[in-house]
Amino acid sequence: MIVVVVLAAVMVAAAALLALVRLERGPSMLDRALGLELLAAALVGVVAIEAAWTRRTETIPILVAMSLVGFVGSVAIARFAAREPSAVRRRAADDPDSVPGEAPEAEEGDR
């Protein structure tokens, strides 16, 4: 079992490192969101491997929380951060006096 755990942990750690590479390289905010999601998955994986090795169950709630938080991060970035630069640039090209930072359309239209 120890061999399996070490091998799996090494692979997941390598995955986390590669996720960091993607986070650093970008080039866009969306790529970073993607890297962040991957990093969260790798963290969940490491916690799972540790719990599988020691047969402990106390860390499992961490997995639940992290699997949810990773998702919220990417969705928030996809909805807001990714929209801003191009929207601001487009409006700035149209009208140099416009104030950046206001969303051009209402986000909560139909409820």
Binding site: M11, L18, L34, L38, G45
Partner: peptide, 14 residues
């Protein structure tokens, strides 16, 4: 092992 491999492959792909 398979799960760790797939996670690594996902990172390589990313």
């Amino acid at each position: 092992l398979a799960g760790a491999f797939l996670t690594l492959a996902a990172a390589v792909g990313a």
